[in-house]
Computed example of a mutant assay.
Amino acid sequence: MPLEEQLDQAKQALTIAIKKKMLEKGWSQAEIADTLQLNRGVVSRAINGDANPQSVETRRKIYKILGMEGE
């Protein structure tokens, strides 16, 4: 499998895992953005697997909110 395809699959798996946990916990992207005092676009990019440093840091915060640390 080409590397880019592997990267796309990893991003999809990440997005699915975060969204499942959001549903379980009853959080919306808007609520996460408000809680973290971030723009909704920043949260959306992080959830959708963007690789820039801001998205990585935002994902770490999202993992903490959703109780995903260590997963």
Rank of each mutant, 00 (worst) to 15 (best):
L14F: 06
T58M: 04
N48T: 03
L38P: 00
V43E: 00
D34Y: 00
A46R: 06
P53W: 11
G70I: 04
G70T: 05
L36P: 00
Y63Q: 07
E4S: 15
I32A: 03
A46L: 07
E24A: 09
I62K: 00
S28W: 09
R45L: 07
A17E: 07
E24K: 14
I32M: 03
T35R: 00
S55V: 04
I62E: 05
A17R: 14
Q37N: 07
Q37Y: 01
E57I: 09
I32G: 02
I62Y: 02
Q37L: 02
L36H: 01
K11H: 04
R45D: 12
R59Y: 10
Q54V: 15
M68L: 13
S28Y: 08
Q37I: 00
K61R: 08
E71Y: 13
S55H: 04
K64L: 06
E31L: 07
K64D: 11
I65N: 01
K64G: 04
P53M: 10
P2Q: 13
I16H: 09
R60N: 14
I62L: 04
R45G: 07
L14A: 12
T15R: 12
G26T: 05
E4Q: 15
Y63P: 00
R40G: 15
I32E: 00
P2D: 15
I32Q: 03
L3H: 10
E5G: 11
Q6W: 10
E69G: 00
K61M: 06
T35E: 01
I18R: 04
V42E: 05
K19S: 04
R60G: 14
V42S: 06
M68S: 08
D34F: 01
G41K: 02
Q9T: 13
A17C: 07
Q54P: 06
R40L: 10
I18P: 00
M22L: 10
L3E: 08
L36V: 02
W27L: 08
K20A: 05
E24R: 13
Q37W: 00
G49F: 00
N39T: 05
E31K: 09
V43F: 02
I47K: 02
L23G: 08
R40K: 10
S28A: 12
